[in-house]
């Protein structure tokens, strides 16, 4: 009986984790899509050249000038951060559940993602 309760409790935890991850993905994707649409509107739906991605250092000032490339750059960055956010959300949920193994795995994945950024400059 205890075993059945334990399993039912585990199912509840899995569902909660799925809901949190699903919500983080939804927010990230929708924000990114809205930004891309705004960027395309700023170019008159392709009537003007968009240009290249804006470097991170120039991004804030370009955004203030409503530069289309800057808006799309930000959208791409938000999109790339969305799967990262699902790892962060999963890590937080697992820390709350005191699941040390899987919160450690989440941390390891975040480190690998950080390494991928560092090595891309090599």
């Amino acid at each position: 009986m205890d075993y059945v309760k334990e399993m039912q409790n585990k199912d509840k935890k899995e569902k909660r984790l799925n809901i949190w991850v699903s919500t983080s993905l939804k927010i990230g994707v929708y924000v990114s899509i809205v930004m891309v649409v705004i960027g395309l509107i700023l170019t008159g739906f392709g009537n003007q050249n968009i240009g290249d991605l804006v470097p991170l250092t120039q991004l804030p000032s370009a955004l203030l000038h409503l530069n289309a490339a800057a808006v799309i750059t930000l959208a791409v960055l938000i999109l790339l951060l969305t799967p990262v956010s699902q790892i962060v959300v999963a890590m937080v949920v697992m820390l709350l559940e005191k699941d040390k193994i899987y919160s450690g795995i989440c941390l390891l994945l975040l480190c690998i993602l950080a390494i991928s950024i560092v090595v891309s400059f090599v």
Binding site: S32, I33, N49, G51, L53, A68, L80, Q86, S116, S120
Partner: peptide
């Protein structure tokens, strides 16, 4: 779920190496 994470790692490397072009990527994303 996994593909989202895997492709992000690859995309990040290509992004910082200058292979991502807004004119191509914006309509593709939509």
């Amino acid at each position: 779920f996994m593909i989202a994470i895997t492709t992000t790692v690859g995309a990040v490397v290509y992004y910082f190496r200058g292979y991502v072009y807004p004119a191509i990527i914006a309509p593709l994303i939509i």
